[in-house]
Simulated assay, not measured.
Amino acid sequence: MAWYLVFDIGATSVKYCWMNEIGQISAFNNFSSEGKDGSSILESIKELILQNKDKVSGVAISSAGIIDSTEGKIIKSGAFQDLQDKHIKNWMGDIVPELKVTIENDGNCAVYAEKWLGEAKELDNFISISIGTGVGGGIFLNGKLYRGSELMTGEFGSIYTQSMSGTSKLNSISGIKGVRRRYAAYLGIEMEEVSGEEIFYKYGQGDYGLDRIVSDFYSGLALFISNLHFIINPERIIINGGITLSETFLPMLTSHLKLYGYNDASAICISPLKNRANLVGALYYHLNE
């Protein structure tokens, strides 16, 4: 059976694994990307590929940013400015010309993953929301991935939403980096000194000094989802990301949705692929491109 190296490039970490053509994952790992430039991340990826080039059948990459997947090019990368207009397929092709290399937007990868192995196998209209460093996702409409005229569909974090603290971009209050930044400012420390896991764990343990930050996280997300539901009217809204591993995530989100009149949350579910949806979808795109 063929095995592929699959990477998910995010602003906080790069996840990677071996995956076969039926989506089985082996040797899952990650390394930090926070504070690094894009070129150094690509060098780390190149090293991993070269170490395994004799046994890998192809390389599939999921990445944040606006991606022209047909050309294999990063058009815009908010987290890694030096990768703007970087032609990944050509760059990799010069290094390992014998290997097929693909790159796709991470939100679109999550959509493909749900359609292939997740909650949306039988659905023609659904939305995937990924909660990580920021908030992204993708839209599957009338049986097809909807990309938009400028390939920007699913850049949900740039939408303005409302919370108890006022009007903000969704990334600022419901992206994990925004949550970390607000908590660090509250404590008077550097953002790098706190993690999203630590914040939500402390809140769960009764640190109600975090009440406003956590409440804003859920209320901003709930208002966004409620509006999205009425605009698109999908069969399902599927949420993935590390935060969804918490048993309290969906009940907390549901209670905040009710504040906006969204009383039937049966269309909202957690992805069974958790925080590996982008990896799974990257391989799906690679196999079907």
Rank of each mutant, 00 (worst) to 15 (best):
A2D: 14
Y4L: 01
L5R: 00
V6R: 00
D8I: 01
A11G: 15
V14W: 01
N20Q: 08
N20S: 07
Q24K: 15
A27H: 14
A27E: 14
E34M: 14
E34H: 14
G35V: 10
S39H: 09
S39T: 11
I41D: 07
I45F: 07
E47H: 15
E47W: 12
I49F: 04
L50P: 04
L50Q: 11
K53I: 09
K53V: 09
K53H: 11
G58Q: 02
V59Q: 00
A60G: 09
S62P: 06
S63F: 00
D68I: 09
S69I: 02
I74T: 01
I74M: 01
K76M: 05
G78Q: 00
A79T: 02
Q81N: 14
Q84W: 05
I88L: 03
N90M: 02
W91P: 03
M92G: 01
D94M: 04
D94I: 00
P97M: 05
L99C: 08
T102W: 01
I103P: 03
E104K: 15
N108D: 09
A110I: 07
Y112D: 03
K115Y: 12
W116D: 05
E119A: 11
A120G: 13
A120L: 11
K121D: 06
E122G: 10
L123M: 08
D124F: 11
I129W: 10
I129N: 10
I129V: 15
T133D: 13
T133M: 13
V135K: 08
G136H: 07
N142D: 13
L145S: 00
L151Q: 07
L151H: 08
T153V: 13
E155M: 03
F156V: 04
F156M: 05
S158V: 06
Y160Q: 04
T161H: 08
T161Y: 05
Q162G: 00
K169T: 13
I173L: 11
S174V: 11
M191T: 15
I199M: 06
I199F: 05
K202C: 07
Y203M: 06
Y208F: 11
R212I: 12
I213T: 12
I213Y: 12
D216W: 11
G220M: 11
A222I: 12
F224I: 03
I225D: 03
S226E: 15
L228M: 13
L228H: 03
I231L: 14
N233F: 06
P234D: 06
G241Y: 09
I243V: 15
T244S: 06
P251H: 06
T254D: 08
T254A: 08
L257A: 03
Y260H: 13
G261L: 10
Y262W: 11
D264A: 02
L273M: 12
R276D: 12
A277T: 08
N278P: 03
N278T: 07
L279Q: 01
L279C: 01
A282C: 06
L283A: 07
Y285I: 00
H286N: 02
L287N: 09
